[in-house]
Design a protein around this nucleic acid. Structure first.
Lengths: 106, 106
DNA sequence: TTGACATGCAACCAAATAGTTGCATAATAA
DNA sequence: TTATTATGCAACTATTTGGTTGCATGTCAA
């Protein structure tokens, strides 16, 4: 299931959401309650952020009774790496050289 | 000069801005006017987007007479790759396995 | 010197975003 | 059964964002 690249970039744009991903990368499969601990915002705030992460397919939900477990899905990050960042890699040194030259000539 | 990671993620979150980076990667050092061509929004709109890219240090400006040249700076993209995406790489296969198992067990 | 060209600045507007609070629902534990 | 716990849903608010328009400024070319 390939999610829209834009959803992924948008989801990564917020520091709270990156924090949540970081926490899941430290301990995968946490409940909503656990993820709320030591966060500066309310539970509902966290819920909304997680909903965006889920929409971007960065996080996958598994219900277990009344608990909602959150699992990291590494695929979209990989996708950004390969399809987007990877695109700039071949020209990287070239671009750097061009930039330096332009700055010298000014 | 190391820019705030958040500025970089924010700058990358908009499709117009990614489009501008794409164009510069095709042809580096373009003027504002050139970058405005075939864009759906007004010149002022483009200017604002470029200002954010510049603030994130993704684009560097060089003035040449009355023309403003825009150069791609590959460093921040590299930074995201190494410091952020790279962080998820070691655990990638582990996370994928954990996710699959959680989905099976549900 | 005058006109055209490349860009900047400021004010304004609509829509999206990030956050809140209050109440409802479903699962577990006593 | 009754509390308690874990979560969802909806309404509301303030701020940020992405876009516009109108006018100003500085540079180049005739």
């Amino acid at each position: 299931m390939t999610t829209d690249m834009n959803d992924i970039f948008k989801a990564l744009a917020d520091p709270c959401r990156r924090e949540l991903l970081d926490r899941l990368s430290e301990e995968n499969g946490q409940t909503l309650g656990a993820l709320c601990e030591r966060m500066a915002i309310s539970r509902q705030g966290v819920t909304k952020h997680l909903a965006l992460l889920e929409a971007a397919n960065l996080v996958v939900i598994v219900w277990q009774g009344r608990e909602k477990l959150h699992y990291l899905n590494p695929e979209p990050i990989q996708q950004i790496h390969q399809r987007w960042i990877g695109k700039f890699e071949p020209q990287r040194l070239q671009a750097l050289a061009t930039l330096k030259k332009a700055l010298e000539d000014k």
